[in-house]
Design a protein around this nucleic acid. Sequence first.
DNA 1: ACATCATTCAATAAATTCATTGAATGATGG
DNA 2: CCATCATTCAATGAATTTATTGAATGATGT
Lengths: 223, 223
Amino acid sequence: MSRISPKRALFEQFASVAKAVAHPLRLEILEQLAQGERSVEVLADRTRVSVANASQHLQHMRRAGLVTARRAGKFVFYRMADDGVLELLAALRRTAEARSAEVERVVRNYFHDRDALDAVSRVELVERLRSGTVTVLDVRPRDEFALGHLPGALNIPASELERHLAELDPIREIVAYCRGPYCVLSYEAVALLRARGFKVRRLEDGLPEWRGAGLPVEASGPP
Amino acid sequence: MSRISPKRALFEQFASVAKAVAHPLRLEILEQLAQGERSVEVLADRTRVSVANASQHLQHMRRAGLVTARRAGKFVFYRMADDGVLELLAALRRTAEARSAEVERVVRNYFHDRDALDAVSRVELVERLRSGTVTVLDVRPRDEFALGHLPGALNIPASELERHLAELDPIREIVAYCRGPYCVLSYEAVALLRARGFKVRRLEDGLPEWRGAGLPVEASGPP
DNA sequence: ACATCATTCAATAAATTCATTGAATGATGG
DNA sequence: CCATCATTCAATGAATTTATTGAATGATGT
């Protein structure tokens, strides 16, 4: 009898996109995909869930159009559909940040207190890069670095940082970055390096935002 | 034993915000609230659901911090927490629009075909208002108009438009607007008025976006 | 105090989402 | 063609979400 109203049909579509990002694991997977494409196994590994489970979540997001899949031999590589998804995630973060005291509490306890929270903005870093007065330090794992990184960045994964301090010039100021605004790696790196007397600050967000802003990215290509 | 990781805790917060917008009815309620504050009964009425049901959805969104409630006598008025929520909704729309063929189909069938889709942008309308060469027509219900509308706008609800054509100057160009980019009212109004020989176009989106852009809004106050 | 009205709460049943398990598919390399 | 490996599928049960119903709460006006 009564057909569904066009307005309701639209809202249903919008809701299904929202549902696709309404699960903590899917958000974590998306943070990974924001760095570059990834196979199902790698994603399952990084997020510490079973392969079957990761696969299901990935398909959920594929149905919603948030990610796309590409088959290469035995592997299926997923990637973020486009930068619009990054914007949606950023809007989600901002809303959560502004509205939930819980988010602030977590952020304060685990992130900001480790740091003087004087992060470097993208535009400031662009300036400093032009004048060549900073070392840019990428503290993500090597494979993520290989898929794309800030121009001229040095890659020392956070887990190996302590053993590779010799590679850093103790005079030049360092700017560290990682996956995004809520990635712990760069916070940890800053804390460690400051304790060793280095002059170091964090980039306010990570590689995906840098790329999303249309700034240049270097890639080493797959090894 | 193992505490929840801070990263997971954050993603859980983000996901709960996403969940709060992941239901078609809640999105419809939010579209209403974008116009201004509303009592539970009015919202239930507009969205054609039971009062208890509307109340539950409202509380869900209140817990997520998307809306706030204010008691006035017997009534409880809900309102959107702030403009950040509008941004989240806009990002959701854009993502859905870009990624789902279904959205495009619905939009094309029910909206664009009725219209030459040459909508007027906000900046263009600001220009035209300055030079005083257009009549701005608000086709939303009277109560929504009373809560806030574009400066100098004329209010003729879409349902009464046919009976009030005499109030419109047949010479001047008309720009019609309503609740937002997916509100049918202005599409219907444009179709009706064009059929009657008026020169009329739609504003690309509605009052909430106008207000969100920091442009001036007139209010009649409650009657 | 009492009746009324808007809203919320509590309980229930139906529907949906989720993680897990083990089997099926599809490509690769001997 | 067979064995292997990455991924997907299908089936299950547990957990969560949702709409409905009727009762409880809280404010108002008589």
